[in-house]
Design a protein around this nucleic acid. Structure first.
Lengths: 188, 188
DNA sequence: CGCCGAGTTGAACTGAATCAAGAAACGTGG
DNA sequence: CCACGTTTCTTGATTCAGTTCAACTCGGCG
């Protein structure tokens, strides 16, 4: 719980009152590895803070499915487009390792937006940062080669990606597992 | 001015007081075609609503530069990452056609965030929608072929893209101008 | 022990990049 | 408003990164 409070305090001043209200709506949950947190077709009902674990976002496909995001500790995860629009998700969210989440429901969050001063601020902050990250990945997809994308991921998250099967990394980078295997060999 | 108010009213209820405060900070400006609205290296100081015109976002590159976004009428434009973080932009923003904007400065917007009820709400809404759009483009880059991307753009914005030079569209789609010329020929 | 999914490696194929040259369109000054 | 020069678009030939199909290895697990 401290972890989340610290995260928020790194963003903005937090009154005890607001924090108490917010944290009273948080529920801790643990999940085993390979657990589906959100199934395509279902509507996302939670915004979750990752205390521990690795989480994969992907769209099911014939043959290799399309992995487009990994989340790690100290990040918020959610099928955020489904969550925002309260329409069915087009993708799955699954734990790759044993995971601990602090979760808040959509309805509780709307209440927080309405009743606390920092609600909309935090919602705005979340939206802005998700945007900045997605934008960075978009530019990288347009301008970097597969090899550059792998190297970026590798230098940014060496530890973390070592726990992720190659075939998921391959799809995140935008190539087949065979191609990534060769890229790896090429750069050692 | 009516255009912006309508835009906001389509999102949320707007009190006259909030609207008066907000609109008092808006300045209308006109720009000729090929005018640089934001130069890479400069920090974005405006959030602008497009009343009329087409705007291109791009990063300068040797040979073909990288165009990653087009904005049209009834959209907000800004070097939003630079604007949010108040650090220098890594890309240029340029008008493609004669353009009319309603602009608000960073400082005025911060004041609106602090002093009106809807400030953070609107900021949150803007962040969320920028995220949703960027995320859609990201998925499309990962899963669609160049041809599919062109067809999507074409069916969504037929009218508008007819005014945009092929070489900019090519870079947006993620291929060279030669490749897009051939894709076009293939599909007529 | 044998099976199965994950990773590696090879060979043939393909879509797009690159290099190059000519045609069309555009804008700018006389 | 025309003429020229520049930029944009098209088309062809070659090269290359990555795909696809296929076979083989390795490690974990029932």
């Amino acid at each position: 719980m401290e972890q989340i409070r610290k995260y928020f305090e790194s963003i903005t001043a937090l009154t005890d009152k607001d924090w108490l209200f917010f944290s009273s709506r948080l529920i801790q949950q643990e999940f085993p590895k390979r657990h589906l947190l959100l199934k395509a077709g279902k509507t996302e009902s939670h915004l979750s803070f990752v205390e521990k674990g690795i989480i994969r976002f992907y769209m099911p496909k014939e043959e290799n499915d399309l992995t487009f995001y990994f989340a790690f500790a100290n990040e918020f995860v959610s099928g955020y487009d489904s969550f925002l629009t309260q329409t069915p998700s087009v993708y799955h969210i699954e734990t790759l390792t044993a995971t601990t989440l602090w979760r808040i429901t959509y309805n509780d969050l709307q209440e927080i937006y309405q009743q606390t001063e920092i609600g909309n601020f935090i919602g705005r902050h979340a939206g802005e940062h998700l945007y900045l990250d997605s934008f960075k990945r978009e530019l990288s997809l347009l301008s970097d080669t597969a090899e550059q994308r792998y190297l970026k991921l590798f230098t940014e998250k060496t530890r973390l990606i070592q726990q992720i099967p190659l075939k998921y990394l391959a799809s995140y980078i935008g190539v087949t597992p065979q191609a990534l295997s060769r890229i790896r060999k090429r750069i050692y």
